[in-house]
Nucleic acid binder design. Sequence first.
DNA 1: AGTTTTTCATACTGATCGGTATATTTATCC
DNA 2: GGATAAATATACCGATCAGTATGAAAAACT
Lengths: 210, 210
Amino acid sequence: MSRNVKNNVPSGKKKAGRPRRFDETVALEAAMEVFWAKGFEGASLEDLTNAMGINRPSLYAAFGDKNALFSKAIDHYGETIASPAQVGFHNEASIEKAVTAYFELALEGQCRNGDCAKGCFIAGMVGLEDGCMPELQAALAKQATATHQGFVERFDREIKEGRLGPTPDAEARATLMMDLMQAQSYRARTGATRKMLEDQIEMRVRAVLA
Amino acid sequence: MSRNVKNNVPSGKKKAGRPRRFDETVALEAAMEVFWAKGFEGASLEDLTNAMGINRPSLYAAFGDKNALFSKAIDHYGETIASPAQVGFHNEASIEKAVTAYFELALEGQCRNGDCAKGCFIAGMVGLEDGCMPELQAALAKQATATHQGFVERFDREIKEGRLGPTPDAEARATLMMDLMQAQSYRARTGATRKMLEDQIEMRVRAVLA
DNA sequence: AGTTTTTCATACTGATCGGTATATTTATCC
DNA sequence: GGATAAATATACCGATCAGTATGAAAAACT
C-alpha cells in the first residue's frame, strides 16, 4: 500500500519509466474549459497547453491530436455535467420536481464559474464547423436522441397514468423541454445573469407541463 | 440614361477610374453564406474571396478587413432575414397568426437553401469567440433587446384587451417566443429537416399562447 | 551499477492565416 | 491623346497554426 503510491499505481507493479507530472483528468478539465470559452478553432495548442500546464508532446502522448482531445473533452462534459442533469430528472418522483430539477441542474452546468455564464458546451460547438468532424456530430446527435427518448418515456408514463394531460403529447413535451434547456444555455452564453435564468425556470417548467 | 449605365451610375457624373466588376450586395451575400456555414474563425480569406468571386485587395477596398466584412454580413442578415420575421409578426392582426407568422418566417430564413438547414446566422455566432469583438456582441445584444421589447408591447396590448390570459405575463411570453425561435434555429443547424420544424411550429405557438 | 522505458523540455517543420505592396488593366477627365 | 483615378491580378509579408524530431531527465527492472 505504501509502495508505488507516488506513481499512482496503488497496488501491484508500478509502471516503468518517468512518472507523469500531471493528472490526466484535471488536464482534460482544463482543456474543456478552453474549448468551452474559445471554441474548437479558436483554441490554439498554446492556449490548451498553457491552461493544462503541460507541453505539446505530453499532450499528444496522453490525448492524441487536437480532434481527439476535443472528443475526449466532449465525453468529459457529458459525464460530469450533462448526464447529472438527466439523472436528476429521472430520479425525481414528481414530474414537476423532475422538470424543475432538470432545468436547475442544467443551469448549474451552464453557470458553473460563479456568475460568469458560459452556456452549454455542446450546444455552442455543434453545427458550426461545416462538414468538419462528421463522426463527432453523429455521436452528439445519437446522444441527444437517447436523452430525448428517455424524456419521452417518462412523459408517456405520466400521461398514461393521468398525472399529465394528453396534449401536448410526450414527444412534444420532450422536444419542448430540450428546446427550453437549449434556449437557457443560449441565454447563458449571451450575457444573462444566473439570477435572471433562475427566475425564468418556473416559466419554462410551466411551458413543459402546460 | 444610356450614358454611364455600365458604371452603375444611372444619372449625373460617372466615377473616374476602372469600374467595379462585381456587385457589392451579391458579394456580401456570398460572404454571409460562408460565415454562416463555417463561422468567423473557420471562414478563411481564401474561402471568402472564392465564394465572392473577387480577390483580396478588392475585398479590402470594398469592405475593410475581415471583422468589418463580418459586421456588414451581420447587418445584411438583419435587414434581409431577421427583420422580415419581426415585421411579419407585427403586421398580423390576430395574435395567433402573428406568432405563427413569426415562427414560419424565421424558419424561412433558417432553411432558405432548400432543405439544407443552417439555423440562425446570429445565434450560431454570438458568444463563441471569447471576448473577441465585444462591440459587435453589444450591438447584437442591443438589437435583441429591441426585438424583445417590441414583442412585450404587443403581448401587453393583447393581455390588456383581454385576448390573452394574464399569465404568463407579456415579459415571459416574449422571452418564451424568442427562446423557441432560438431553439428552432438550433435544431435547424443540427440536422432537423424543414418538414420536422414545420410540424413543430404549432407546438411552439401553443406554448407561447398558453 | 547499468539498462530500459516513459515522460518532459526545447526547438523546429511545412502549411496556412490575415493583410498588403507592387504593378497592370480599364475607365473618365481635360 | 495624354493624364489621372479607381479596380484588378499576382505575389509576397510576418505571424501563427497543428504537429513532431531530438535529446535530456526520471523512474523501474535486472
